[in-house]
Design a protein around this nucleic acid. Sequence first.
DNA 1: GCATTAACCACAG
DNA 2: CTGTGGTTAATGC
Length: 239
Amino acid sequence: MMDLNEDAVAHSAISDNCMLCDRKAECFRKLTKTELKKFHDSKSTVTYRKGETIIKQGTQFTHVVSFNEGLAKLVVEGETEKNVMIGLVKPSEILGGPGMFENNRYAFSVIALTKSKICLIDASIFKKIIQTNDEFAESFLSTFSTRYIQAINRLVSITQKQMYGRVAEALLYLSDSIYLTDEFNMDLSRLELAEFTGMSKESVSRIFREFKEDDLISTHGRTIIIKNKNRLRRIYNLC
DNA sequence: GCATTAACCACAG
DNA sequence: CTGTGGTTAATGC
């Protein structure tokens, strides 16, 4: 697994050449030179700005996405105006998902939260290599499964936990799985935190205020400092 | 009944 | 977009 600390970022390189690129998703490291060249010859590299839609739910499944730089949210668009956020996406992960084998439509949307760089890979070539290279297939299945489990966990949290537990969960997720530090710049708006926790944005605000009053966290602008992670964990487990 | 949980609304910054 | 206060409805002692 690649980490996000400054050193790693500074020393890793996105290359236009797939063979040299340090940022490609894990499964591509299992490929032979010939296979990798097939991807290289057909891929396109794209940069998205904050707020741009990288994958739109419901559209034709034409490409698999290698997410190589930035931060994005993975959301399911429901019947109402509100989205449900399954989780965040950071480098380097392969994004495709269930639609590729099911109805040939993307099952969710992916939206950039910061400037992001990705590679678009032809889905038919991707599927072909899944059939011929089992190590590649297994590696892909592994990240696929991680998302699947995450989606199930979101479902359980949103239906069974109460608000304090869900906000604590969001903070722990950001700190432990995304930013890998207890002090970070919050890239999610209150509305997006509401999408993640399945709450109203007002309730998110209220609980943030209470967490600040209880000295569990502090904020300076968009910076969040987690001051008492053990108590947050307790709240997550109990509520 | 009364307390708790949490969404919706209105409004100010 | 963010934060607050008031209102309201459902659920649980």
